[in-house]
Structures are given as C-alpha cells and as structure tokens.
C-alpha cells in the first residue's frame, strides 16, 4: 500500500545546451521534480510529482518554467492515482 495520492506531470523541457548540466541540477533540487535524458541534448524529460494536480501544475508554472537554462516547457501528460490505468501519455479523465 502506497502513501497518499500521487499526481505526476510529464514535461518536455527545452534547455540551453551550453548550461544543460547546471540546469538539470537546479531542476533536481526542486521538491518533487526528477529528470531523465532524451536523445536530443537540447531537451530534458522532467517528471513533477505532487499530491494533487494543482500542486504539480504550480510547480511547473512557478518553478520549473522559471529555472535558469529552461527555455520552454511542455506538459505532455498528467498521470493521476485517482484515474484508471492508461496505457500511455494521456492527460486527464473527464
């Protein structure tokens, strides 16, 4: 049994290649935020984990999007504990 509800927003971040390493460190320091590599050096995968969609969205809007070195952010999916299992990158139950 896992603690509390979980919402995860999957984000495609476009980053400045020259400062990619620093940017990644800054992102990883944010609460609930983890990153993963993508094939293109100008992109980073970002997962934002929070207890609800609002909190995750606030982290995206107020922190991830304003992290130095992040040029643009694209929320690609919203995955929620409260929704039924889905096979891939879908956003939101109606």
């Amino acid at each position: 049994m896992e603690p509390g509800p979980v919402v995860i927003i999957g984000v495609l971040a476009r980053v400045d290649v020259a400062t990619r390493g620093d940017t990644r460190l800054r992102l990883e320091r944010l609460e609930g935020v983890s990153t993963f590599d993508l094939a293109s050096p100008d992109k980073l995968g970002v997962l934002i984990e929070a207890s609800d969609v609002d909190a995750a969205h606030a982290t995206l809007q107020q922190q991830v999007g304003h992290t130095p070195g992040v040029l643009a952010v694209w929320p690609v999916s919203i995955e929620s504990d409260g929704f039924e299992p889905r096979e891939s990158n879908e956003s939101q139950n109606g």
């Binding site: 979980v6 995860i8 999957g10 993963f36 993508l38 995968g45 504990d81 096979e87 891939s88």
Partner: peptide, 22 residues
Amino acid sequence: TSRRDFLRASATFAVASVADGV
C-alpha cells in the same frame, strides 16, 4: 508494477514519445 511506478513510467513514455520517439 507499483501504482506509483506505473504512473512514472507512463509519464516518461509520454514525454519520450513526443520528444524523440525513443
């Protein structure tokens, strides 16, 4: 797969498939 792992994997899949298909 734990529920949380499933959600993380699903979100990762979503981002990766849009970013570069890998």
